[in-house]
């Protein structure tokens, strides 16, 4: 196991509503080293909120609270908003589900990548352009010059997501948070994008938090898995040992999946139990 890059202790995310406070994330602790960690859960499990709160990106009226979020030995909770802006996109980057919402439609792709780089490092315009082109090549875009000049609406979903990855990795971050980065893509494209992400993360020795609803995909792509239910971590295990998972929720999710290799007459419906919500969160720090 590699050294710890990020360690989160007792994280809560709360949303006040008319009918009372809703806790989206309820006291979870986990850590990420230079490895691929998957956070899996169904809608409403709090997995996306977890990803956003690492970068302190919970929008009002939501509130986040934690004992500590330690990144490279520093507690991010003690950082000012200005210091956080230096962390975001520079040392910790985030890739979202749909590139269409993350890219500015009125600027060319190249300009946006260059801007991302120049925001955090002192490089000349020419160097930035060179760096952007190299990065586009690294995400296996065949004609980087053309893509550099194009606008977001001219790109297909898979191409857009490659551009996003290029933009997020050009500042050489140490940690990448990918929130459902391939869910909007076709399966075959999805695999290519994952392969690119995988290769770059490995080459640069980065940490990766991969947030997804797809248990199958996460277990085949990540090193370690964190399974969330109703704002808590119900189970954590090595990806290769997922089939040995013991929590009834994890088992239920596994059994609910139809599988090509083994036909089943009936899929097992998940019987949710209220006790799962009451159980203490599992500590997923290593």
């Amino acid at each position: 196991m590699s050294d710890t890059l990020l360690s989160v202790e007792d994280l809560w995310v709360r949303f006040p509503t008319r009918t009372g406070t809703v806790d989206a994330v309820r006291g979870i602790s986990f850590s990420v080293g230079r490895e691929r960690v998957g956070i899996v859960g169904e809608s409403g499990s709090g997995k996306s909120m977890t990803g956003r709160s690492i970068l302190r990106l919970i929008r009002a009226p939501g509130q986040m609270e934690a004992k500590s979020i330690t990144f490279n030995g520093d507690n991010l909770l003690e950082y000012s908003e200005r210091q956080m802006r230096k962390i975001r996109g520079h040392q910790i980057s985030m890739v979202m589900q749909d590139p269409k919402f993350s890219l500015n439609p009125v600027h060319s792709v190249g300009k946006q990548i260059c801007e991302a780089l120049r925001l955090h490092t002192k490089v000349s315009r020419k160097q930035a352009r060179q760096g952007a082109l190299e990065m586009l090549e690294a995400v296996q875009i065949r004609n980087p010059e053309r893509v550099f000049r194009s606008y977001p609406h001219e790109l297909s979903g898979g191409m857009g997501q490659r551009v996003m990855i290029a933009m997020m990795l050009i500042t050489d971050p140490q940690l990448l948070i990918a929130d459902e980065p391939t869910s909007a893509l076709d399966v075959t494209v999805q695999m290519k994008v994952l392969a690119i992400m995988d290769k770059l993360v490995q080459e640069r020795g980065m940490g990766l938090i991969f947030i997804s609803h797809d248990l199958n995909l996460v277990s085949s792509f990540c090193d370690r898995i964190i399974i969330m239910y109703a704002g808590r971590i119900v189970e954590t295990c090595r990806a290769s040992e997922l089939h040995k998972a013991t929590h009834p929720y994890t088992r239920g999710l596994l059994n609910a999946l139809p599988r090509i290799e083994e036909p089943k007459g009936r899929l097992e419906a998940l019987q949710r139990q209220d006790s799962w919500k009451q159980e203490a969160s599992v500590d997923a720090r290593v």
């Binding site: 009372g20 806790d23 409403g44 704002g231």
Partner: peptide
Amino acid sequence: MTTAPVKS
């Protein structure tokens, strides 16, 4: 305090 985003 409600514990989950479910209306009771």
